[in-house]
C-alpha cells in the first residue's frame, strides 16, 4: 500500500500530502476498537499468559512422548502376562470418580428469564487473545464461559449476552430490570433444567470489575449474568460499565 502511495508521491508531492491526511483520518477512526486491548497494562498481562502457556506446553509435550511410548508397546500381551503373574490383585471395575463440588452441573444450551421475556440459545465461549471473556458474535446468542464451572456446580458459572448490537437492543437489553427473587432457568441438551434465583445486581466500571467475585471460587452454586451498561464510549469502543446479575441455585 504505502509503496504505491510513495510512487504516486514521487510524481506529485501535493498528492502525497493529500493521501497522508486521508491515511491519518482513517487511522484515527479505526483506533477505538484496536486501542483497548493494546493498552500497556493488557499487553503485559498477555505476555505473562503466553509465557506460562509455553512452559505448560513444554511439559505437555514431554508427557505426550511418554504416553505414546507406552501405548506403542504390545498392550494385549503385556496385560495377559500381568494377569497371570498377579493373582492377588484386587480387580477390576473401572473406578467411578467422585465428583468434587465444582465438577457437577449441566452444560446449558438454552436460557429462559420469564420476568423480562428472555428465551435464547446458549453457546460455549472461552477467552479472547487479550484474556477477556469471549462473547457470542450476534446479539441474539448468550455465551457460557466454558473455562469456568457449569451451572449447578459449586462456584461461579457465568453467562454473558449483548445489551445491544450495531442496530438496536440485543438479548440482554432488559437485564437491568431483574430484581432479587426473579428466577432464571438454564436447560441442557438432554432436557435437564436448573433454576436460579436473583440475589443482587451490581454495575462496575468496565476496566475495574471484581473479576474474582464474578468468576472466582465460591462455596455457593452461582450463575452470574453479564451484560454492558452505561454510555457507549466511542473512543474505547465499548460501554463504560458492566452489569452483573448474581443468582444462586434455587433450594428445592
Amino acid at each position: 500500500m504505502q509503496h504505491s502511495f510513495s510512487a504516486a508521491a514521487l510524481r506529485n508531492s501535493k498528492k502525497l500530502l493529500f493521501f497522508l491526511s486521508i491515511l491519518l483520518l482513517s487511522a484515527c477512526s479505526t483506533t477505538p476498537d484496536e486501542s483497548s486491548p493494546a493498552s500497556p497494562e493488557n499487553a503485559a498481562e498477555t505476555t505473562g499468559i503466553n509465557e506460562e502457556e509455553s512452559t505448560l506446553e513444554e511439559t505437555a509435550l514431554e508427557t505426550e512422548v511418554e504416553s505414546t511410548e507406552n501405548s506403542t508397546e504390545p498392550e494385549a500381551a503385556a496385560q495377559t502376562e500381568t494377569e497371570a503373574e498377579t493373582t492377588p490383585v484386587t480387580q477390576a471395575e473401572p473406578i467411578e470418580p467422585v465428583l468434587g463440588g465444582s465438577a457437577g452441573g449441566i452444560i446449558p444450551v438454552t436460557l429462559s428469564i420469564p420476568a423480562i421475556d428472555v428465551e435464547g440459545p446458549v453457546l460455549p465461549v472461552g477467552l479472547e487473545e487479550d484474556g477477556a471473556m469471549e462473547v457470542p458474535e450476534t446479539g441474539d446468542d448468550i455465551g457460557w464461559f466454558e473455562r469456568g464451572v457449569k451451572p449447578g456446580a459449586q462456584g461461579n458459572a457465568v453467562l454473558a449476552g449483548h445489551v445491544d448490537d450495531l442496530t438496536g437492543p440485543a438479548i440482554f437489553f432488559d437485564l437491568e430490570k431483574l430484581e432479587a427473587g426473579d428466577e432464571i432457568t438454564v436447560t441442557s441438551a438432554d432436557g435437564e433444567s436448573l433454576t436460579f434465583v436473583v440475589t443482587h445486581k451490581e454495575a462496575y466500571p468496565y476496566q475495574d470489575a471484581p473479576i474474582d467475585e464474578v468468576f472466582g471460587a465460591t462455596s455457593s452454586r452461582r450463575l452470574n449474568l453479564i451484560t454492558c451498561t452505561g454510555e457507549f464510549d466511542r473512543d474505547a469502543g465499548t460501554h463504560r460499565e458492566r452489569l452483573v446479575v448474581f443468582t444462586e441455585l434455587k433450594q428445592e
Binding site: V135, F172, F173, I226
Partner: peptide, 15 residues
C-alpha cells in the same frame, strides 16, 4: 477452572 482477565465486550452500542 480459569478466569478471564477482562470483562466481556457485551455491547456494540446500537441502542
Amino acid at each position: 477452572g480459569d478466569m478471564p482477565s477482562e470483562m466481556p465486550q457485551t455491547g456494540m452500542g446500537g441502542a
